[in-house]
Nucleic acid binder design. Structure first.
Length: 581
RNA sequence: GGGGCUGUAGCUCAGUUCGGUUAGAGUGCCGGUCUGUCACACCGGAGGCCGCGGGUUCGAGUCCCGUCAGCCCCGCCA
């Protein structure tokens, strides 16, 4: 139907006759002359219609056009008159003088505009999701999906060159006993029994390792029936990788090589090797297991200096076994009390009772904490006039998240220059277990993590201090992926499940197939799962995953374009053995 | 499960503080004039369940209660 793409029309085509197709982007009528901006995926081009070169039928057809009508145009490509060129438009030196124009389909007046005038706000996200096909016509979103395609294509090529096989694992799987809620699928042939949609292909990829398919890749769709966030969808895509006979360093190198290859697709940097930091150091220095290292401002232990001051709050916190930790912000005293209040609010939202602060000036220190300062307190903390100190006192479980939130809020408020623009980081040696609210052991990551060899003897005596051979890939404070070396010994895997409180008969029923496989000669193996949606969103500079997913769900887990989920007739449910409540 | 913000014309938003004539603007849409526009310009017109339900009041877009939807966050997300 077409002989050229709209966005590819350039001076080399001048004088040639072409046929173009696309959507009416905008229209301008000047009486005898009129202009139609024609849009296809490749761009926008001005079509000019005038009595000197267009037939009366063409002029009449052009006069009837509305926005988003689908048309086909034939005409001569021309360089525009010198004075009529538009330097703000990619094809602004060119135009097509239409000799024939055919309406392929009419569009009703669009519910949301595809063309947005400068400085016009986007329609509300509610409407953008409801009218998704119109929203997706905007070049901005098409570019996000194109970037996603290029990234996933490069991922496949990268791993293919290294001998990985892409292998599809089941979508109808076995419900998993722990972790996120499963989406369940009723079995018609086995009434009262259910499949689950996979939360990840974790166990299947381990089984593939046992099967000897020692390098596995899958661009895998995963499902979790949990509440959403801007960076969490119920249905998402993982770049799932597993390999046999590997150590963490092998995984790091593969991923670093991959990121170095992907980053240029989005014009960002990925200098390898990436920095590595233990989980323990990350929490100590940044209060978070995914610190944003584009900026400095590490957390410091200020107990030796501040514990001596005359503040009862601080003295009591130290006496109760806590520490005083804080952030030294150079130049931070220019923040207003209101801004500091905003930072404190962030710390409170993260669970701190409050945040203490001191502004350092030539004359001394001010603020709720500054008033306790002695003459040399500032100097002993290594602080200068113009600096701001933010401090929290108490147990690390309170101060770490509080100071992480405060650090992030302070960086937003101060907007200091970045130390690096692209901060890549491996966070390593995650603890194997964490303490659940009821005091029981819970898996920190998942139950399929190999304990660190130096700590394995502590499994029974001090399980909470056992490090796992687990690692996260962090980019600019966002967790892009998570992986580990897995236990390949059935006995050890059984022991870990037991420590997690899974009863022996339950282990047999739920993990029997895994343990049976591990006992059949499983190789040492490990891998990682990278969040494809998050990766693309980060690379595209998007805050929401919705912008890199063609048909995303809303925050309440609805599909508002197609209208799902929907009720199902009771006879259909009955056929599945389900009785609605 | 909890907290916050938002909901007024097709779209983006004023108006809600302190209840009071006929709810406005820009843009889009419809009609007209216009031969080099590109946020075209100009003239005219249509377009409103003020998310929905209830309450208070002589009177509610505005106050109260509930509810629905969208967004952000906490919990949750092995």
């Amino acid at each position: 139907m077409r002989s050229a793409e709209v966005g590819r029309v350039d001076p080399s085509l001048a004088g040639r006759e072409v046929r173009l197709v696309g959507w009416v982007h905008r229209r301008r009528k000047l009486g005898g002359l009129s202009f139609v901006d024609l849009r296809d995926r490749s761009g926008v081009l001005q079509i000019s219609i005038g009595p000197e070169w267009s037939s009366p039928e063409t002029i009449e057809a052009a006069g009837s056009l509305g926005p988003e009508d689908v048309i086909r145009v034939r005409g001569l490509v021309q360089e525009r008159p010198e004075e009529a060129r538009n330097p703000d438009m990619a094809t602004g030196d060119m135009e097509l003088r239409a000799t024939a124009l055919e309406v392929l389909n009419r569009a009703r007046t669009p519910e949301i505009p595809v063309y947005l005038p400068p400085e016009e706000e986007l329609p509300s996200e509610k409407l953008r999701l409801r009218h998704r096909v119109l929203d997706l016509r905007r070049g901005e979103l098409q570019e996000c999906l194109a970037l996603r395609h290029r990234i996933l294509l490069a991922v496949r090529r990268y791993f293919d060159r290294r001998g990985f096989l892409e292998i599809e694992t089941p979508i109808l799987t076995k419900p998993t006993p722990e972790g996120a809620r499963d989406f369940l699928v009723p079995s018609r042939l086995h009434r009262g029994e259910f499949f689950a949609l996979p939360q990840s292909p974790q166990l299947y990829k381990q089984l593939l390792m046992v099967a000897g398919l020692d390098r596995y890749l899958q661009i895998a769709r995963c499902f979790r029936d949990e509440d959403l966030r801007a960076d969490r969808q119920p249905e998402f895509t993982q770049i799932d990788v597993e390999a046999s006979f590997v150590e963490p360093g092998d995984i790091y190198r593969w991923c670093e090589g991959l990121m170095a290859e992907l980053a240029p697709l989005a014009g960002i940097g990925a200098e390898t090797p990436f920095r590595r930091m233990s989980y323990r150091d990350a929490i100590e220095s940044y209060g978070s297991d995914r610190p944003d290292l584009r900026h400095g401002y590490p957390i410091a232990d200020l107990t030796p200096v501040l514990g001596e001051l005359g503040s009862t709050i601080l003295r009591r916190a130290v006496a109760e076994g806590g520490r005083i930790r804080g952030l030294r912000l150079s130049g931070g005293s220019r923040l207003t009390r209101r801004q500091i209040g905003g930072i404190e609010d962030a710390a409170k939202a993260a669970g701190a009772p409050g945040l203490l602060w001191a502004k350092i000036s030539e004359g001394g220190a001010t603020g709720p904490l500054g008033r306790f300062f002695g003459d040399d307190t500032g100097a002993r903390l290594g602080m200068e006039a113009g600096d701001l100190l933010l401090a929290a006192a108490g147990g690390d479980r309170v101060t770490s998240p509080a100071l992480a939130a405060a650090r992030s809020a302070a960086i937003s408020a101060l907007a200091p220059p970045m130390v690096v623009e692209d901060a890549w980081l491996w966070v390593t040696d995650f603890p194997l277990f964490e303490e659940a609210d009821d005091g029981a052991l819970a898996a920190n990551h998942h139950p399929f993590v190999q304990p660190h060899p130096d700590d394995i003897h502590l499994l029974d005596s001090d399980p909470l201090s056992v490090r796992g051979m687990a690692y996260d890939l962090v980019y600019n404070g966002t967790e892009l992926g998570s992986g580990s070396i897995r236990p390949h010994d059935a006995e050890l895997q059984t022991r870990i499940l037991g420590l997690l409180g899974v009863e022996p008969d339950e282990i047999a029923v739920k993990f029997g197939f895994l343990l049976e496989a591990l006992g059949s000669g499983a190789p040492p193996h490990g891998g990682i799962a990278l969040g494809a949606d998050r990766l693309v969103a980060q690379f595209a500079g998007r805050a929401s995953l919705r912008d890199v997913i063609a048909f995303p769900k809303t925050t309440t887990a609805r599909a508002s374009f197609e209208g799902a989920p929907t009720p199902v007739a009771s006879d259909e449910l009955a056929a599945l053995g389900i009785v609605p409540k």
